[in-house]
Design a protein around this nucleic acid. Structure first.
Lengths: 128, 128
DNA sequence: CGCGAACTACGAAGACCTTCGTTGACATCT
DNA sequence: AGATGTCAACGAAGGTCTTCGTAGTTCGCG
């Protein structure tokens, strides 16, 4: 039982995960205040309780106000969602997703450089 | 009445859309046979009826076996899902999604070349 | 102590998604 | 005509997600 497979986070769960990734360990109150959507306090609480059951977050109950933290690293979740989307909508081709992503919005020169670097290393790899 | 904004397709709906995009206009039977998942005929039928209500597909009832076709172009849906994911998980940066996508799997030289071309044009654009 | 504020836990409602059984209409074959 | 097969329509069940009200607990304070 080392690890059951983690479920794809729902939209509400993802919003909470983003807060935990950005802020680090946080109480329900802090998460609720950071999310500026109209959801009520107990809604956020309940969702975070469910996320605990699912293994998406962990909870430190040492204090009265429990402290939650993401149990899944941001990168893992990003990778999970990206490969999901690639398989479901882009016929398994990450490059097509990348093309689509880059076509939609403007990208900073720094990011362009980063991409170019990655492209270089990928091309080198395919040559070997 | 057509909706102002199309809803994000669910997983089952996406699977059906893929069939319609690939095969073109099709009957329920054809879609059902193409999908090799274990779902029953009436399940597919029902989903496609719902998709019709949602405006995701259109239906030609001229024949006894109704003929469905995608009402949303593949590219639009891809763009919709990509920008969705970018906003929800990548802090609005398409480039980060692209980086993540390309890091996960191998990409063919042709696609690499295509990406490089896109990068070039994007860099030119940002210079101006 | 007694009160109010902050907090967790619980349950239930409502929406949506997926699934499929059943029904009835229509067609085709014998 | 009668039997068989194909099809759309409908409804309902079971699951998940999101929402929030309510109840109960604990803390701090007057």
């Amino acid at each position: 039982m080392s690890r059951a497979k983690l479920p794809r986070p729902t939209d509400a769960e993802l919003a909470i995960l983003r807060v935990l990734w950005d802020r680090g360990a946080s109480t329900v109150r802090e998460v609720h205040e950071t999310l500026q959507d109209g959801s009520g306090y107990t809604t956020v609480l309940k969702t975070m309780q469910i996320m605990t059951e699912k293994g998406l977050v962990m909870r430190d109950e040492a204090q009265r106000a429990h402290v939650y933290s993401a149990r899944v690293p941001r990168e893992n979740t990003q990778r999970q969602l990206v490969t999901d989307l690639v398989d479901r909508v882009f016929g398994g081709s990450p490059a097509r997703l990348a093309l689509q992503a880059l076509s939609t919005k403007k990208t900073s020169p720094e990011e362009l450089a980063e991409l170019r670097q990655l492209l270089d290393s990928l091309e080198k790899e395919s040559e070997s």
